[in-house]
Design a protein around this nucleic acid. Structure first.
Length: 513
RNA sequence: CGCGGGGUAGAGCAGUUUGGUAGCUCGCCAGGCUCAUAACCUGAAGGUCGGAGGUUCAAAUCCUCCUCCCGCAACCA
């Protein structure tokens, strides 16, 4: 199903297969709103991580999906009015559309309204029962908004929305999170890479150190949710329901050993706003249920637009579909992951976007590929065998061959930004190599050497395309197609390109006229 | 005194752990090349490293105080 799969044999042969399993997840997105750039960003990042590991020889399971329960969804459907399940179907489809648009290589799309998930969430609940008890949940409730309001947010007896609040009490099930404080701190201590980036890790540890309170995990004021097992009037309130998606996707409650094993290799990509639930609640649930805690929770940052928070009234909302339509998905994928370090917040400005597309993609990468391949066309699209590599060529050769190992180290830390920088170092070096080698002169003076130079460049471009494949699958594919290297093994290619028929290239990132 | 991160060239950042000529990208200026999507390559200019004090032969880097900005501070799907 993956376009990259064709490259996999090359990777395996090239760098040695790493026969391991990796689970990568995006958050499941709440369907109360349409997909926006934040959703696209999280999913693209997870996709790159998943594609990288696939190419690196691992067995990968990438899951994504939609979170469809809760009062807000029920209310949105009512106001249309529309059957709530139909509403959920419709909204969920929009996220599937997004996945197609961003070229997501998901292995599973999970919906919390599916039977398999209901079964999974309820089974998880049952496993947690020793830590669940019934009590009274109380707080300031806004009847108009139909939701509880945090005490700090209540001003003069009103919710932030302006609606009046009243003190409300209701029966609720609670999870004994307080019992997990020490175990969690111990886990963070023994697994320093569990939470990334490190600044976020400190936040979480500090939060836990300040003391954990049990929290409410059910509601009986609405029924659009997974019913609590053995209860007539309670549905699960968000977290057990939502977080359980990750194990649902792995087949829970069946094959629990397998699920647990896979969770230990799991990388959760989440937004910083839901880090706590993934780094505190979720491991506590899993510990209670006797399932392995995930390997890593990576919290990404938020994008603003032109230096300001995106808002419809300012009119600076970045629409991923619009950008993809106009500039192509690979440009968007590149920008989002190259512009800022993964984990930081970013500013999506039109100028910055255009600059990246124009300079990095068209000028550096696109032009490199173009100038080399066009040159080869002048040799009738063929390179002759030539083993006579000078030291300059050998240096570039070594760097090209070392790229994947460098990327592997960076990707181990989910340093997507660093990985792209690393690839572009090779792009720059290759461009410089052309300037230094002056192939246009060699064409007149030393055709033998010219072949060596171009062969070296092809080797570098091949490595670049390969490194690029997880980030910009379409672009990598185009490069491979120009070089007709489909089905070729690395060893054949790296010795010479003599049996490769090069097609006439077309600019990878054409300039707008 | 809640906890934490940060203030380095016009912009965005690295360097601070293990003190020793201040670095990267973009922008700006000049030059080179001409194979290529007028792309590419090289060089120069530009910073008293938030402020004050201290330790030291030597501090962006260590210590103290001050100041400004930003995260986190639980029921947020």
């Amino acid at each position: 199903m993956n376009k990259s799969d064709g490259c996999r044999c090359i990777a395996t042969e090239l760098y040695g297969a790493k026969p391991s399993s990796v689970v990568v997840t995006t958050p499941i997105y709440y369907i109360n709103g349409a997909p926006h750039i934040g959703h696209a960003y999280a999913s693209i990042a997870a996709d790159v991580i998943a594609r990288f590991h696939r190419l690196d020889g691992s067995k990968v399971h990438l899951s994504t999906g939609t979170d469809e329960h809760g009062i807000k969804v029920a209310r949105s459907a009512e106001t249309i009015p529309m059957d709530v399940q139909k509403f959920a179907d419709q909204m969920s489809d929009k996220f599937r559309e997004m996945n197609r648009a961003i070229n997501l290589s998901e292995d599973d799309f999970i919906r919390t309204t599916e039977n398999r998930h209901r079964e999974s969430a309820q089974a998880l609940w049952k496993l947690l029962e020793k830590d669940i008890y019934k009590d009274t949940y109380s707080g300031w409730y806004s009847a108009r908004d139909e939701e509880y309001v945090a005490a700090e947010d209540v001003v003069d007896g009103n919710a932030p929305s302006g609606a009046p609040v009243e003190w409300m009490e209701e029966e609720s099930y609670f999870f004994r999170l307080s019992a997990y404080q020490d175990r969690l701190l111990d886990y963070y201590d023994k697994h320093p890479d569990f939470i990334a980036p490190p600044s976020r890790r400190n936040e979480v540890i500090n939060f836990v150190k300040n003391g954990l309170r049990d929290f409410s995990i059910s509601r009986n004021k609405f029924d659009w949710g997974v019913p609590v097992p053995d209860s007539n009037d309670h549905v699960m309130y968000v977290w057990i329901d939502a977080l359980a998606n990750y194990i649902t996707s792995l087949g829970f409650p069946h094959n629990r050993e397998y699920v647990s094993e896979m969770m230990a290799n799991c990388i959760h990509v989440v937004g910083k706003e839901i880090l706590r639930f993934h780094a505190v609640y979720w491991p506590a649930f899993l510990m209670s249920a006797g399932i392995s805690v995930p390997k890593r929770v990576f919290a990404h940052g938020w994008w603003v637009s032109e230096g300001q928070k995106m808002s419809k009234s300012i009119g600076n909302v970045v629409d991923p579909f619009e950008i993809i339509e106009k500039c192509g998905i690979d440009s968007l994928r590149y920008f989002l992951l190259r512009e800022i370090r993964f984990g930081e917040d970013g500013d999506f400005s039109n100028d910055a976007f255009q600059r990246r597309i124009s300079y990095d993609l068209a000028n550096d990468l696109g032009n490199l590929v173009q100038r080399v391949l066009v040159f080869i066309q002048k040799l009738d699209g063929r390179l002759s065998v030539n083993y006579d590599f000078s030291s300059e060529e050998q240096i570039l050769f070594v760097h090209a061959r070392g790229l994947w190992d460098s990327l592997r180290q960076l990707m181990e830390k989910q340093d997507l930004h660093g990985a792209l920088c690393c690839i572009w170092d090779l792009v720059s070096e290759s461009n410089k190599f052309i300037n230094d080698m002056r192939p246009w002169e060699l064409a007149r003076t030393d055709v033998r050497r010219l072949n060596a130079v171009l062969t070296t460049l092809c080797e570098s471009i091949r490595a670049i395309a390969f490194g690029l494949a997880p980030f910009m699958p379409g672009t990598a594919r185009k490069i491979f197609d120009f070089m007709n290297v489909e089905g070729k093994s690395f060893r054949e290619l790296s010795i010479n390109f003599s049996d490769v028929r090069f097609d006439p290239p077309a600019p990878l990132f054409p300039r707008e006229r």
